[in-house]
Design a protein around this nucleic acid. Structure first.
Lengths: 239, 239
DNA sequence: AAATTCATTTGTTTCAGATCAAATTACTGA
DNA sequence: TCAGTAATTTGATCTGAAACAAATGAATTT
């Protein structure tokens, strides 16, 4: 029996064939916060470093995380943003290929890799997660390889508006209603820049430009009110 | 029973619980070439288009393919290069998120998606493929987001040299022996440019520069002799 | 082998985004 | 509330890669 409508692995907890493992974790930096099969992180805590041994998977129950890679000279590329329901900790070889860091306070559900590989249901679920991440990575590859700064920032903003800009985008809700949404970035300008393959100055300039054009309002540093969602969407390079 | 050392899905053929399906395929452009569970493509044949319904998986038995995405104005980003043993045709939703095109003559092994999702062994194998592809995508994300043109082309050349430049890189084989290799690109300058997020002119200029520096020799357009593998590796930005 | 077509290389100019620098604004903790 | 610090914005300049243009070279056809 494989559920195709399952949207979170943690929903399975307690009913799936888990063998409640009690061993003590030795996770760097966050060890003291671990309790049972849940784990909490503060903003900017590192969950694991690139090169660490990969032994468990995590599901983001609350908060936002990022995966990034560093070049030896310090250049950083954020390769993935993880939000509620997303999984991380996958590894092909025995070691993580990215560093995982919390962007906000985070609550995680922890799974032993062994649990996953012995349960076909889990296996199937993980598979769907991977496919979904793969699709987002493909899209991000286009952004990094071919889009202008304006297109990158617009695409990023659209990614924060649920059910808009994507394949099933229906356009504005209702005729005449304001096409508007306030989004939480949960990232500094530097983190956004490292995600979009830009500099902090360029990100800032594009945001200022969108502000000047009346498409967004910056409420707090971390919170942007999009005044015209369709207007931003038109700037993503995908229309 | 799950084999961890399996390196090609097609090796399973005949012994795995496949139900030899005989239905007629209606694959655009390549239909006439299909025979049984094998499929052949000529260079530049399209196997499937972005948006096509995803119903089967493919394993590259011979040749090289690419996955790419197009923006409405024609900009193209090649998101993945597939070589012998690689799988393609995965989809999260019911439709392909990329177009798949042959770079050379290609021989494929075809699998019905249904076959995969009902076999735990297959499921497990596909999982490892996805993880491996994910890791390569992460690395490519760094290339596109943070590397210079010289670093991109050097990284690309190194990716064509087996067992070098990666994690387990041992350096040159033996002291004093020439650190040399001839690689087949299997891609035009345009395709390389679209993979590396550059223009054709920039790719050409970097190749000329490497030639002038004595690090490579261009034998045929498609074949490059690397005179100093370590020298190229030093230019990838990863040392 | 010559003719045609297509791909690649090389030269020149332009420009988007990086870099460098400074001012401004937002947060933090006493 | 007010320093003090960190993050962001804005300005000026520089530069690497894009865009444009033309020449060269390779592959294919006749």
């Amino acid at each position: 029996m494989v559920s195709a409508t399952l949207t979170k692995l943690s929903d399975l907890d307690g009913q799936a064939p888990f063998n409640g493992c009690q061993e003590n974790f030795r996770q760097p930096e966050v060890m003291e916060k671990h309790l049972g099969r849940k784990q909490r992180l503060s903003a900017h805590d590192v969950l694991f470093y690139e090169g660490d041994k990969a032994e468990r998977l995590y599901e983001v129950v609350r908060g936002v995380m990022m995966l990034y890679k560093l070049l030896p000279d310090g250049r950083r590329q954020v390769v993935y943003i993880l939000r509620e329901g997303d999984m991380l900790g996958f590894s092909n070889r025995d070691f993580f290929d990215c560093t995982a860091e919390a962007l906000t306070e985070v609550e995680l559900q922890v799974f032993e890799s062994r649990e996953i590989s012995t349960s076909p249901m889990m296996q199937h679920y993980v598979n769907r997660c991977l496919l979904s991440q793969m699709e987002i990575l493909h899209e991000h590859t286009v952004l990094l390889g071919r889009k202008s700064a304006l297109e990158r920032v617009s695409t990023f903003l659209m990614s924060l508006v649920p059910n808009r800009g994507g394949h099933g985008c229906t356009g504005p809700n209702e005729e005449g209603k304001p096409d508007t949404k306030t989004v939480a970035l949960s990232m500094t300008r530097q983190e956004i820049a490292d995600y979009l393959g830009l500099t902090i100055e360029t990100v800032s300039r594009v945001i200022s430009q969108l502000k000047r054009r009346g498409l967004i309002k910056v409420e707090k540093q971390d919170s942007i009110h999009i005044t015209n969602i369709c207007g931003i969407c038109q700037l993503t390079g995908m229309h």
